[in-house]
Structures are given as C-alpha cells and as structure tokens.
Simulated scan of single mutants.
Amino acid sequence: MTDAQPRPHVLTALDGDVWRITLDRPETGNALTPALAAELLAALEARPERARVVLLLANGPRFCVGGDIGSFAGADDPGAFVGRLAHDWHRVIRAALYSPVPVVAGVQGAVAGAGVGLMGACDLVICARTTKIRPAYGAIGFSPDGGTSWALSRSLGAPRALDLLLSNGVLTAAEAHLTGLVARLVEDEDLRATAESVAVEIANGPVRAMVRTRALVRRAATRTLEEQLDDEAQLIAESAADPEGREGVRAFVEKRLPDFRNAR
C-alpha cells in the first residue's frame, strides 16, 4: 500500500471564464505555511489561458489568519525559517499584483498578518460585514511582511497605518471600506454569491484594458501629474489599438453590446 497523499491546502476550479482559487485549511484559519504558499503560487501560475479573471476565496469562517505561529515556535532557526517563508509568500503577492488578468477576492471572518497583504494585492476585494482585520505582528514581536505595510499605508495613510500596526489595533469591515482597503461591503451570507457575480461581470469586460487601468491607478500615488499623463497617453493608445478597444468602438457605433470575450 502507498501512503495517503496529503490533503491539498489550495483548491482550484475553472468555472466558465473564472479561475477560482480557494484556500482550504479552515481548521487553522487558513494559516500560512510553506506548503500553502507553494500551492497558492502554483494555482496563480496555473491559470488556464481562457480564464479572464481570478477569484480568490477561502473555506471556513476565517479568510486567512496570517502565519502559522506554532511552526515559528518549533523552528530550530526562527529567523531563517520566517525569512524563507516571507520570501515564498512575496512570490505569491507579486503573482497576484502582476496577474495578467484582474484578481477579485471574497474576504470573511478574520484577516490577520500576511493575510492582510494578500488582500491588499488583489484588485477588487468584496468584504463580509462582520470581518475583522488585524495586522497582529506586534503581538508576537514581528514587523510586517507580505506587503501588509504597503497595503495599509496606501489605503489608510502613514499615520493611521502606524497607529494600527504599533497599537496592535483592529479594523472593522466598515472602517476598511471607508478607507478604501476593501472595495465593497456585503452581508455575510451574500459574500460568496456577490464575489462570484462580480468576477463574472469583470470577466465579460475588457480585461486587458482593466490591467492597464490597474497599472495606472497603482502608480499614480508615486508619480507627478506629468508622468501620469504621459503614461495615460501611451496606455490609451495601446487600448485603442487592441482588439478590445476596436470591438468597443465598433459596438458603440453599431449601438450594440460589445463582445470583449471574443476580441482577439
């Protein structure tokens, strides 16, 4: 007899144009381990060519509680172990940030530590109303990783981000929505259905233009207006020459809905 294969920590499924990725360690709050980081990176990189959007979900009552702290305590060399895990997790964050298609996330329950950075790497976050967001690094004497400091500074501003991080504070879903850390707030029971509906809606749109738009928005905070105008001019020209742009213009002139999915 062969040994049983370990249960996967990340599930994937192609549903039409949507590549669904689901964290599946609910018994641990989907805590981050080297295995989960490796599987999530593989899932992002394995997106089928036909998938026009990534939908990131999590099974269980909590989206992601951050690192598996028990594994930190058991490491012979905690610095080396946590450093390697951060390096692996940052590959995941970069894969989400630079995904060739938009990334939508449905977030519920508790989000902590590196889970905050994962949420911040997604393009559009749908958040359940009772969700609590807590960086939690200070509680164990760590500084942030996973892009958490970037995501919080970008949405809250430096003073409020520091207040949250240094005081080991908690953001409610309503506060996260008000500050822009999450895009939409829904009732808990509507989270998954809403996230799926939004993913389908985005998949029907001009996804290559959306990726260009994402790049413009993310770079805007660190650029001068002149630099941003130059980039906008370049990217709108690319969009106009793209089959998506050609289809959009034709559809407008012909007074019909555009078919971006088949614009090649």
Rank of each mutant, 00 (worst) to 15 (best):
D231K: 13
F142G: 00
L36H: 05
L23G: 06
V182T: 15
P243H: 05
P206A: 14
F63Y: 14
A199M: 06
A114V: 13
A173S: 11
S149W: 13
A136N: 14
A209G: 11
T22L: 09
L181R: 05
F260K: 13
A195P: 00
L32F: 04
G157V: 10
L185H: 11
D17S: 06
A251K: 01
D15K: 03
I69V: 15
R192N: 09
T172L: 01
P6N: 09
A121V: 06
L44V: 11
A158N: 03
A173V: 05
N168M: 13
N168C: 15
A183T: 03
T172Q: 02
E247H: 02
T2S: 12
F63K: 06
R184I: 06
E39N: 05
E254C: 01
R223M: 13
V249F: 07
A240D: 12
A195R: 00
P243T: 03
Y137E: 08
T179L: 07
C122Y: 00
A215L: 12
A110R: 14
L178R: 12
A31G: 08
V182P: 02
R160N: 06
R184G: 00
E254P: 02
L23N: 04
A95D: 05
Y137L: 10
A240I: 15
D15N: 04
M119C: 10
D145N: 11
T222P: 00
G117P: 08
D188H: 07
